[in-house]
Design a protein around this nucleic acid. Structure first.
Length: 235
DNA sequence: AAGAACTTCAACCGCGTTCGG
DNA sequence: TCCGAACGCGGTTGAAGTTCT
């Protein structure tokens, strides 16, 4: 009958972690590696639930965490990625080695949001606060490496959705879609195939070029993530 | 010096997705 | 194939620290 419960909630500690708890968790992961969060608390002798152990390790104890203030370069990367991905903190964190999703989320809410607002920019749409009509003229496509971010000017984007019976519908994203999400999307059913057609103008310093491509999204993953993957494949 | 107001961030909560029996 | 637990994520909370009055 499914899996057994992860922990006995009545017998777990809550709140701030003690140094001793931290050390037990570090020692255990050093000896046994990450994973198996369900059984970890018991085998490490911790009165915490696995979920809490995982969070403590990922957000605070991991040896590869950077710590310290965010650099201006990191600020810019976060802002650019947020304009493309929205509040997808884990995806953003994936592009910033040594930073966690929780850390970036906190930093966004306490620093960057305020910074953008003080410059008259809406932190959700990344557009001037009093500009309610215009559609974003740029989207950001991010390559496999951290420094691969390239800005595209958007000339046309069309998405075709095809269901399992072969019937298809198609359309171009609406202005309202773009305004609300800061990116292009098609609000189709996750379970169906989605075909993406892009017609983009690229700008590199003084030069420019044009990319026209298409990506077919399989149906095994959340379609929104696949949209990202399709964009990558167009590069 | 004190306490009110504000800021920061670690930790918790709840929900959607994935996975195992 | 179904059901239920684990996992992973984003939103929220609240304690601790800092600044202001």
């Amino acid at each position: 009958m499914g899996r057994s419960p992860c922990c006995e909630k009545a017998h777990t500690n809550k709140g701030a972690w003690t140094k001793e708890e931290d050390q037990r968790l570090i020692d255990h992961i050093r000896n046994h590696g990450e994973g198996c969060w369900r059984s970890l608390p018991k085998s490490a002798g911790l009165l915490r639930c696995g979920k809490s152990c995982r969070l403590r390790w990922i957000n605070y104890l991991r040896p590869d965490l950077k710590r310290g203030n965010f650099t201006n370069e990191e600020d810019q990367i976060i802002i650019k990625l947020h304009s493309l991905l929205g509040n997808k903190w884990s995806l953003i964190a994936g592009r910033l080695p040594g930073r966690t999703d929780n850390e970036i989320k906190n930093y966004w809410n306490t620093h960057i949001k305020r910074k953008l607002l003080s410059h008259g920019i809406d932190p959700q749409t990344h557009r001037p606060i009093n500009d309610t009509k215009a559609v974003p003229s740029q989207i950001v496509v991010v390559g496999p490496n951290q420094n691969d971010a390239v800005e595209y000017s958007l000339s046309n984007l069309a998405v075709k959705q095809e269901n399992s019976s072969g019937a298809s519908t198609s359309g171009t994203t609406t202005d309202e879609d773009l305004r609300q999400n800061g990116e292009c999307y098609y609000s189709g059913d996750n379970s169906e195939r989605i075909e993406l057609n892009l017609d983009l103008t690229l700008g590199f310093g003084s030069g420019s070029g044009r990319v026209v491509g298409a990506g077919l999204l399989a149906d095994s993953k959340p379609w929104r993530d696949q949209l990202m993957a399709a964009r990558l494949s167009l590069l």
